[in-house]
Simulated scan of single mutants.
Amino acid sequence: MGTRVVLESAEISRALTRISHEIIEANKGVDGLVLAGIPTRGTFLAARIADIISRIEGRSVPTASLDVTLYRDDLAQNPTRTPHPTDMPAVGIDGCTVVLVDDVLYSGRTVRAALDALNDHGRPKAVRLAALIDRGHRELPIRADYIGKNLPSAKHERISVRLVEHDGIDEVTISSDDSVGDRA
């Protein structure tokens, strides 16, 4: 199969703009809203969504970076990456609507870990989930509230999100690589 591009820069931008409008609509504005990105690429996506929302609403939206590495329940099966710093807004998250932002929603385990990590930082009024890509194969009863693109895929396929801030290019690719195993 090789590798094929499924989203290019303009398509990613349109998806994030749509997600931003949906978040504003569901939240009835930006009051009490916090966007919490899950490193690495979720943090960059949260910052982009915050920028789009601030251009639409004329007000900034607090962002956070929520590392979930040590909250994962699959550390024994997967190599641990170096934890990123968790950075919460000065206003905190108590009583806020927190939108968790991640690049790929797959098994749901990262989101479960994010919910546990979020509990250590306060008690939000509500937690929502935004994902650029939903590839299916859920192992836990978790679904995204805001999705850039549903991309059904086989478990042996790999979905790769690349962002300018980290990778120098904006694109989403899908490739078939049996050596990758069950990864995002």
Rank of each mutant, 00 (worst) to 15 (best):
residue 67 D to P: 05
residue 71 Y to K: 10
residue 69 T to W: 00
residue 74 D to G: 08
residue 129 L to Q: 06
residue 73 D to K: 10
residue 107 S to I: 11
residue 103 D to M: 09
residue 82 T to Y: 06
residue 139 E to G: 15
residue 88 M to I: 14
residue 121 H to P: 04
residue 71 Y to M: 03
residue 76 A to M: 13
residue 140 L to C: 07
residue 96 C to F: 12
residue 109 R to Q: 14
residue 109 R to V: 14
residue 136 G to T: 03
residue 122 G to L: 04
residue 132 L to G: 08
residue 135 R to L: 02
residue 83 P to R: 12
residue 77 Q to L: 15
residue 68 V to E: 02
residue 119 N to I: 05
residue 140 L to W: 03
residue 110 T to G: 08
residue 141 P to H: 08
residue 65 S to P: 02
residue 60 S to T: 15
residue 129 L to P: 11
residue 111 V to S: 10
residue 70 L to Q: 14
residue 121 H to W: 15
residue 67 D to S: 11
residue 82 T to N: 15
residue 66 L to R: 01
residue 94 D to Q: 06
residue 118 L to K: 04
residue 105 L to C: 14
residue 88 M to F: 03
residue 90 A to V: 13
residue 124 P to N: 02
residue 86 T to V: 04
residue 72 R to Y: 09
residue 88 M to P: 09
residue 64 A to I: 09
residue 97 T to L: 05
residue 73 D to Y: 01
residue 84 H to F: 13
residue 123 R to H: 13
residue 120 D to K: 08
residue 99 V to P: 13
residue 121 H to E: 07
residue 87 D to L: 15
residue 118 L to M: 10
residue 84 H to G: 02
residue 85 P to G: 07
residue 136 G to V: 06
residue 110 T to E: 11
residue 133 I to F: 00
residue 126 A to W: 03
residue 94 D to G: 06
residue 123 R to P: 01
residue 89 P to D: 01
residue 104 V to N: 09
residue 124 P to E: 00
residue 122 G to A: 04
residue 63 T to E: 09
residue 112 R to T: 01
residue 116 D to G: 03
residue 94 D to F: 04
residue 132 L to N: 07
residue 103 D to T: 06
residue 90 A to K: 15
residue 76 A to H: 04
residue 117 A to H: 11
residue 90 A to F: 13
residue 130 A to D: 06
residue 101 V to R: 06
residue 96 C to Q: 15
residue 71 Y to V: 02
residue 82 T to F: 03
residue 83 P to I: 13
residue 64 A to H: 03
residue 100 L to K: 06
residue 72 R to Q: 10
residue 104 V to A: 09
residue 64 A to S: 04
residue 117 A to V: 08
residue 140 L to F: 13
residue 91 V to E: 15
residue 126 A to M: 10
residue 108 G to L: 05
residue 75 L to N: 05
residue 82 T to P: 13
residue 119 N to V: 00
residue 93 I to P: 00
residue 70 L to A: 05
residue 115 L to R: 04
residue 115 L to W: 08
residue 115 L to K: 04
residue 112 R to Q: 13
residue 93 I to Q: 03
residue 101 V to Q: 04
residue 131 A to K: 01
residue 120 D to N: 09
residue 132 L to V: 06
residue 83 P to F: 03
residue 127 V to W: 02
residue 70 L to S: 13
residue 141 P to L: 05
residue 88 M to D: 06
residue 61 V to W: 02
residue 133 I to P: 01
residue 122 G to K: 02
residue 60 S to N: 14
residue 107 S to C: 11
residue 115 L to V: 13
residue 132 L to E: 07
residue 127 V to S: 05
residue 71 Y to E: 12
residue 115 L to H: 07
residue 77 Q to M: 12
residue 110 T to C: 11
residue 80 T to F: 00
residue 137 H to A: 07
residue 93 I to M: 11
residue 119 N to S: 14
residue 133 I to G: 00
residue 72 R to N: 12
residue 74 D to L: 10
residue 94 D to V: 07
residue 115 L to Y: 09
residue 130 A to N: 04
residue 87 D to H: 12
residue 131 A to D: 02
residue 110 T to Y: 11
residue 93 I to A: 10
residue 141 P to S: 07
residue 75 L to H: 00
residue 125 K to N: 09
residue 131 A to N: 03
residue 129 L to F: 05
residue 128 R to Q: 14
residue 136 G to F: 06
residue 111 V to I: 15
residue 68 V to W: 00
residue 95 G to W: 01
residue 118 L to R: 08
residue 62 P to G: 02
residue 123 R to L: 08
residue 134 D to F: 07
residue 92 G to Y: 01
residue 134 D to E: 15
residue 129 L to E: 08
